[in-house]
Design a protein around this nucleic acid. Structure first.
Lengths: 123, 123
DNA sequence: GGTCATGATATAGAGAGTCTATAGCCATGG
DNA sequence: CCATGGCTATAGACTCTCTATATCATGACC
């Protein structure tokens, strides 16, 4: 997914695996079709996180294959066919796992990044 | 790198690119050889982050190739030869970029993960 | 009525970064 | 002298994302 930061040098392919967590979390709000999931993630992140279609759909199939979400064809409000995904019980558990893993990771990285250099601020 | 959490289901390959930032940050404390960098990251993260040798050395070569670190053979305290890495000026800039990118990312993900579900806490 | 933007899904192929596994060298201690 | 641990290195597999491309439907516009 793309990081749309202030500067345009934002490298792609930032996460690896975190997309799953984001999708699962988004589905916690209720069933949604793929395209809408991408929009939701983008909106919730204030346009910072933009999931490409080529990442999104494979990810959804991955999640379905693992039994974390279930899929069903339906109609959108605009009367177009779309595949609706629903968070499965197994997916709920997975989400909890990924959330704690993410927190743990952020904390660990924070510990490495944070400590003030011992010999002054420079170098 | 491996996340050594409480539970052992910790998936590998968690970051992708974040290792560079960690290495660069570690070198801010002063020049170190590869093996020691891995030890430092592990120690600073309270044993949570464990960088595998097969990730560490290719990463160091990558960073050297990009001019973010410079390498020089030397002797360890235990009198063994080792390659010492030093943070280059370009690497310092890169570190700043990666730090702000990381913060931005963590914040964006936080926004997606955080909001309380609108219709009750469940489902 | 045709065309175009947009919504919506999908796949192939490339690329990047990490992992596992393996290999080697050197130093020190038993 | 052999084992252990410090130290570096690479090949190959794997996973996830990306770019590019394709398809089909709907509604708007001319």
């Amino acid at each position: 997914m793309t990081l749309h930061s202030s500067r345009p040098d934002a490298r792609t392919d930032l996460l690896h695996g975190t997309l799953d967590m984001l999708i699962l979390r988004t589905l916690q709000w209720g069933p949604q079709h793929g395209y809408a999931i991408g929009q939701t993630i983008r909106a919730q992140s204030s346009d910072v996180l933009q999931v490409e279609a080529g990442s999104l759909y494979p990810a959804l199939q991955r999640l379905a294959k693992k039994g974390w979400v279930t899929a069903k064809w339906g109609q959108t409000e605009a009367n177009q066919r779309a595949k609706f995904y629903r968070l499965a019980p197994e997916g709920k558990k997975q989400l909890l796992r990924e959330e704690s893993r993410w927190t743990e990771l952020v904390n660990a990285i924070g510990r490495v990044m944070k400590p003030a250099p011992a010999r002054g601020t420079e170098e």
